[in-house]
Structure formats: C-alpha cells, structure tokens
Simulated assay, not measured.
Amino acid sequence: MKKWSGSAAVCINKNNEVLMVRGKDSNAWAVPSGGIETGETPESCCVREVKEETGYDVLIKNKIHIKETLIDEIEVITYYFNVEIIGGEIEINDPDQTIIEAGWKSISELHNLEHMYPEDIAVIKKSGD
C-alpha cells in the first residue's frame, strides 16, 4: 500500500486565534501543512510548510498529535506540532501554488468555519487550552 507522511502546524496567538490557510477553489480552511520531503524530519517539514504557506518563521514547541488515516487507499500519517512565531509576516510563497489566503481565526469561532479537515478542530482546541 502507498504511504504519505506530512506535518501540520498549530499556531495560537495571544488573542486566542489560530493561524489557518485556505486553498484555491475552496472555502475550507486548514492549519498549515504539507508533505515531508526526502531527507526531511517531520519537524523541519512543519517549519518549511508554515514559511511557504504563511510567510512566518516558527519555532516548534512540542509534538501534539499524530493522525493516521486512509485516503484513496493511501496510508496517511500527519504529525501535528505546536509552534510559535519568531519572525516574518503574512506572505504566501507556496511553490505548489495551492494556498491563496492565510489568516488568523478565532478559536471560539472555529465551528462557524468550513474546514478542510473537520477532525482537526479538536486538536486545535486542545492545543489552545
């Protein structure tokens, strides 16, 4: 069976907002994430994806979740990390050109958003506690 591994970043600011991105042709939001490239650790993938998708430089605080699922007969493992911003500003440099918007979304309003991965809401909320 084919396998895919990726990393995702949960970044919550002092206003209790989470950093999220939206892809083109979609109204659904998700935390910044992407596939681990050859030679990359899950941690370095997470830092790179946040930079590409949002423009922010981040520092990993800790690993918070591992999601294992099956999508179209592909085994998918995604590593979730709590991160904090250490520099940069919102600027999208996604080489895949799939991300069209990045922004801060209130954790208390998450249930009102359309989510690409609704199962991530619990991970985000737990991370913010």
Rank of each mutant, 00 (worst) to 15 (best):
M1Y: 02
K3V: 14
W4G: 11
W4M: 09
W4Y: 11
W4Q: 09
W4I: 14
S5Q: 05
G6V: 10
S7N: 08
A9H: 08
A9Q: 13
A9P: 11
A9E: 15
V10F: 09
V10N: 01
V10Y: 08
V10P: 10
C11V: 00
I12K: 05
I12F: 14
I12Q: 02
K14N: 14
K14F: 15
K14Q: 14
N15S: 07
L19R: 02
M20F: 11
R22D: 04
G23S: 08
G23W: 06
G23T: 11
G23A: 14
K24Y: 01
D25S: 03
D25P: 02
S26W: 09
S26R: 07
A30Y: 13
A30G: 08
V31C: 15
P32N: 03
S33R: 11
G34I: 14
G34W: 04
G35Q: 05
T41S: 04
T41I: 13
P42L: 08
P42H: 02
P42W: 05
E43Q: 14
E43H: 00
S44A: 04
S44Q: 12
S44L: 09
C45Q: 14
R48G: 07
K51P: 15
K51Y: 11
E52A: 06
E53G: 09
G55H: 06
G55L: 04
Y56W: 11
Y56S: 07
Y56D: 00
Y56I: 00
D57A: 00
V58E: 07
V58T: 13
V58N: 09
K61P: 13
K61G: 03
K61H: 12
K63L: 13
I64F: 05
I64L: 08
I64H: 02
I66N: 03
E68C: 05
T69W: 00
I71Q: 09
D72G: 02
D72L: 15
I74D: 11
I74K: 03
V76I: 04
I77A: 13
I77G: 01
T78P: 01
Y79N: 01
F81T: 12
N82M: 00
N82Q: 03
E84I: 02
I85S: 03
I86V: 09
G87C: 08
G88E: 02
G88T: 05
E89D: 14
E91R: 00
I92P: 08
N93H: 13
D94E: 09
D96I: 10
D96H: 11
D96Y: 05
Q97F: 06
W104E: 15
S106W: 14
E109C: 12
E109S: 12
L110A: 08
L110Q: 05
H111V: 04
N112S: 07
L113N: 13
L113F: 11
E114N: 11
E114K: 11
E114W: 11
H115F: 04
M116S: 12
M116Y: 06
P118V: 03
E119G: 02
D120K: 04
I121G: 01
K126Q: 06
S127H: 06
G128S: 15
